[in-house]
Design a protein around this nucleic acid. Structure first.
Lengths: 321, 321
DNA sequence: TTGAAAGCGTTACCAC
DNA sequence: GTGGTAACGCTTTCAA
């Protein structure tokens, strides 16, 4: 900051951070504040964190795939809650980096905490981040990563709810839609596994159904539907469910009589379909809670890693199953 | 960086940035690199930008409202393209700040460029950012802001296309859905204005229809539909269109005979409805082009502000109108 | 109550 | 070819 009001830099620092020890005279404070406004002074985060040895940045990678309203809202909540705790939330636009590479890119900003999908980071990435001064690393995903706190997003149980529901409704030959789009495997594979587990040891079969998110792909699948002989399908999520349901209806397949359809995520969308779409409702944790967890972890970096299950799954039975 | 390999910090800097002047012996280079890996060394972005006087950060505010797949994809593209140009893209989780407040928060990171909705920033915010060293400020939105480059997102023409289409199809009493959700006004108001302009001086009327994104709200609107005497409606976007269409159909209103419905954004969704939804297709600029614009602006900060129209709007006529 | 000075990690510039 | 030194903007300690 310039030698603006004819006082020393230290005085400026005191005033602008209003340091508790009230050692600066009121007139001086006023002069400093005025000069700051006049000059459009903005503190330099880099200099501050260089000196302090750490920043107030909580870093998360920006999602690489277009993400649904559910997750968007979750991120927003979280940002708001972290902001209240005086953290600066930053979504880092990592291009296509993974693991250590990504961790290194993030570490350059010396975030005080990092929140990232476990799959994007790995144990080695966690180590890089911790060594570079991150006081907390929190992973999101199906399993915990060594050395980091874990928010266990149990997508497997989403599939399990759907599978169990279909089975309970008397369905035995069950299809599971697997999105062809890249980047969805971390969600789709556990969901598939959950359906498998629901039918494990029972008299049912599970068939994987690759499906691209476009009408032609859906029409192709629907055209060979009767040949597949399936009486139930878990469509990955509500959007794919809508796509598939439409194609099946166009093909004359009656829902739910011939084939029961279950989606997931409980979007508005599904309520508007006819028949109304049965779905697995997914509960994400409140941003507030998660922000508190991050804050606690930052304050006590040596604490044992927490593993907290989040993402409750509940079956919502409507008309399509 | 620690005094790791028994060489000076300067030598380390040379090796890791492999400075062109090849003045470092190969053995030394090797030693340095090895030590760096061993220590898990990661350069300190804050120190670097403090020294350099500027960062490579391109900052954008993280969207405050859940944003559709269209805009998500656009942001992703842009991030990727800027990453290719060696910028670090950062989405700043600004809680509820606007204008100068927000600008100040962003300026603390000393980004080399800022990309933000014009409404979120204002002329004063632009000034703060420029004074704090941002070499380029690019606004997105319906109108340009003094001192900044502008990407003119012409939502007014989206509404205009819809309005003109409905009028051409013989509709005269036209409703325009206005989402009740906060944060959508920057899009909904221009879209409404566009419809108004399309009917300007013609023998038609425009009626605003507030609508919350939930079934009850839609049902209430549908219940009083016949009383409104509207023969056409522009539903803000495809999602609201789907919500409204379903409610109207449940009420027995025939589409498009009694009421024509037009959405916007050309989502997959609309193709799956019956009747298929007419919509206004929106073209966002390629991330690549925009990244180039930012890069040019950064290289020549003194250049006259560009105002570039983006977001082409095309009417896609399907069955609902 | 205020000012001077050190030091955070980097890099540009000069001596060695 | 190498290494020392200063400076970037800020906070903090110490002295005036």
């Amino acid at each position: 900051m310039a030698r603006l009001a004819g006082v020393s830099r230290a005085t400026v620092s005191y005033v602008l951070n209003n340091t508790d020890a009230v050692r600066i005279s009121e007139p001086t404070r006023r002069r400093v504040r005025e000069a700051a406004r006049e000059l459009g002074y903005v503190p330099h985060a880099a200099a501050r964190s260089l000196r302090a040895g750490h920043s107030r940045i909580v870093l998360m990678p920006a999602p690489a795939v277009p993400v649904g309203p559910l997750y968007s809202r979750f991120i927003n909540d979280l940002q708001w809650a972290l902001g209240r705790l005086d953290y600066t939330v930053v979504q880092h636009g990592t291009v296509g980096l993974h693991g250590v590479e990504a961790a290194r890119a993030w570490a350059e900003l010396r975030p005080v905490a990092v929140l990232a999908p476990g799959s994007a980071i790995g144990a080695e990435g966690v180590a890089v981040l911790r060594r570079s001064g991150a006081r907390a690393v929190v992973t999101l995903g199906p399993e915990a990563v060594e050395g980091a706190h874990a928010l266990l997003m149990d997508h497997e149980s989403v599939g399990h709810r759907a599978g169990a529901h279909l089975y309970a409704r008397g369905r035995r030959r069950i299809g599971v839609v697997m999105p062809a789009e890249r980047g969805l495997e971390p969600f789709s594979r556990p969901r598939l596994a959950g359906v498998r587990r629901a039918l494990d040891g029972a008299d049912g079969t599970v068939t994987e159904l690759p499906l691209g998110y476009d009408e032609e792909s859906a029409a192709r699948l629907a055209a060979r539907w009767r040949g597949l002989g399936l009486d139930g399908v878990f469509a990955y999520n509500d959007e794919y469910a809508m796509l598939l349901m439409r194609a099946l209806q166009d093909e004359g397949v009656r829902i739910p009589e011939e084939t029961a359809v279950v989606g997931a995520d409980d979007l508005m969308l599904g309520r508007l379909l006819r028949p109304r779409l049965s779905t697995v409702h997914v509960d994400l944790p409140a941003g507030r809670d998660l922000a508190d967890l991050v804050d606690r972890a930052v304050r006590d970096p040596a604490a044992a890693p927490e593993r907290r299950p989040v993402l409750g799954a509940t079956m919502v039975h409507r008309e399509s199953s």
